[in-house]
Design a binder for these strands. Structure first.
Length: 484
DNA sequence: CAGAATGAAAC
DNA sequence: GTTTCATTCTG
């Protein structure tokens, strides 16, 4: 009877929709079937303090859930909701996150930004032992049952088309994925609170945020041709695509290869290099994030222009930087053939990193109504199996024992993660805060006429990425600057 | 109010 | 397959 439930009027429900999803009732119940199993929870007691049942069937040892009194629930996501809005039952991760935040495993000293925290918690979640995650899935299941008991008429009714004009303007951060990973790693190892403070403080001493540059997939004359013909109707009909994400636990696409996701053709507009003011006008986000470029200790010969500074000499064309690289260092790395492949030029202190994700941008990437971040291609670049094999329903549906799949060590996961589209805020994201010289090369790259370049080097990928990387390496003189 | 994460559920 | 929305809080 889902149809019936759907028809039911949510607004009939009483005003006690102010809920806080904690695990307080969860552990007191057992979920062995879909029927009533929570005798102590009724629609009335749903918000009541936790029953004093100690017999927790299972509790995370690593991150025990917080059972203190819930803080009054803030209206979800700060969005205005109807007075009697009934929130969705939380999923396992949301429960985990909630509890995690509340227990302050990561103190304010380490991280305050919740976007970053989400990242950290996400990484932690991925690295959580299977059993631990299972516990949270169990809690989620119980929460769902509770929810059903309390709101038997509830049906999730997402407002489709609501976010049609929504676009991911720009990614916050991700300042430092490595740092997030480190924190997550330590967390899974049991370090939290003050221990973590100390460990991260030490880590921060030696760690510098990595440089990440994103370029779209290599442009060839062929693709250019193809695009030109398709461009018009494409841009007329295509709408923004939603954000998909990296492989998830229950998703079978986790194991799919990136080659199965053809890239959308780049747009004609993309090929031309508009004047900076036009660029800013066309796109709602800047090409580069150079917020604190000036913080970096500059040497006299270092460029100090911001790309988005009006003073930046965009007319200074130096396409030869790329060619010079090829002449000097030989052929570039083999061209990626699938969207989402990434060049990753060594990352540690000995050779500072430059990751280039070559995901294509949607056709209208330079127009207002699209989001590079929301292309599927930018989220399918996992060329290793997902570390996440956990099937929350493994107990209900007996599947090919995925649960016995190997648990990927963090390091490996990180690589997978780093090659994904998590720097997907724009086509070329360069954190030059710590590597200003890289900016120089990128600037030159962008100053060049790509049209000319493509015409002259047809069927060859643009290699600005490599140029930038080497440029920076050269600048660093091969001297280790940071240790990780 | 977007953003960050993952996952459930609806289109 | 895609989109929304659960949590949380800051910028």
């Amino acid at each position: 009877m889902p149809a019936d439930r759907r028809r039911s009027n949510l607004n009939d429900l009483s005003d006690d929709a102010q809920m806080m999803w904690t695990n307080q009732n969860v552990d007191a119940m057992s979920v062995n079937n879909g029927i009533a199993f929570a005798p102590n929870v009724t629609p009335i007691t749903f918000n009541d303090p936790p029953p004093l049942v100690d017999a927790t069937p299972c509790e995370s040892s690593l991150f025990p859930s917080v059972n203190e009194c819930p803080a009054p629930r803030r209206s979800g996501h700060g969005k205005r909701k109807p007075e009697n809005h009934i929130p969705r039952p939380p999923n396992a991760f949301i429960l985990f996150r909630s509890s995690f935040i509340k227990s302050q495993h990561v103190s304010n000293k380490v991280e305050t930004n919740h976007s970053t925290l989400s990242k950290i918690i996400g990484l932690t979640w991925q690295n959580l032992p299977l059993e631990e995650r299972q516990i949270w899935h169990h809690k989620a299941k119980v929460a769902l049952s509770e929810h059903k008991l309390k709101f038997p008429d509830y049906a999730f009714r997402p407002l489709h088309g609501k976010g049609k004009d929504k676009r991911k303007v720009r990614e916050v951060g991700p300042k430092d994925l490595k740092r997030c990973e480190k924190i997550a790693e330590l967390l899974v190892l049991g370090k939290k609170g003050e221990d973590l403070d100390v460990a991260i403080k030490e880590f921060d001493k030696h760690h510098a945020p990595e440089v990440v540059t994103r370029f779209e997939a290599p442009i060839t004359a062929q693709t250019f041709e193809k695009v030109s013909s398709n461009e018009r109707k494409d841009s007329l009909t295509k709408k923004t695509r939603g954000t998909s994400r990296k492989p998830s636990a229950s998703s079978s696409e986790a194991l799919s290869t990136p080659s199965s996701s053809p890239s959308p053709p780049p747009s004609l507009l993309y090929f031309s290099t508009p004047p900076p003011e036009q660029m800013r006008g066309l796109r709602s986000e800047p090409c580069f994030d150079m917020v604190s470029f000036g913080q970096y200790p500059c040497t006299p010969d270092m460029p100090t222009n911001h790309l988005d500074s009006p003073n930046y000499p965009f007319d200074r064309v130096d396409a030869q930087a790329t060619l010079a690289y090829q002449q000097h260092y030989g052929p570039a790395p083999s061209a990626p053939t699938t969207a989402g492949e990434a060049y990753t030029i060594s990352t540690d202190c000995h050779s500072p990193q430059l990751s280039i994700d070559t995901s294509l941008i949607p056709t209208d990437a330079w127009t207002r109504d699209s989001s590079p971040a929301s292309t599927a291609s930018s989220h399918t670049s996992y060329d290793t199996p997902s570390p996440n094999f956990y099937d929350p329903y493994i107990d209900t549906f007996s599947t090919q024992s995925q649960s016995h799949a190997p648990h990927y060590p963090l390091q490996e996961q990180s690589q997978v993660y780093a090659q994904g589209a998590h720097y997907s805020g724009c086509d070329a994201y360069v954190d030059t805060v710590h590597q200003p010289h890289a900016q120089s090369a990128v600037s030159e790259y962008f100053g060049a006429s790509l049209e000319t370049y493509v015409a002259e080097h047809e069927a060859k990928p643009l290699l600005a990425s490599s140029t930038v990387g080497l440029d920076y390496q050269t600048y660093m003189g091969g001297v280790p600057q940071y240790s990780l």
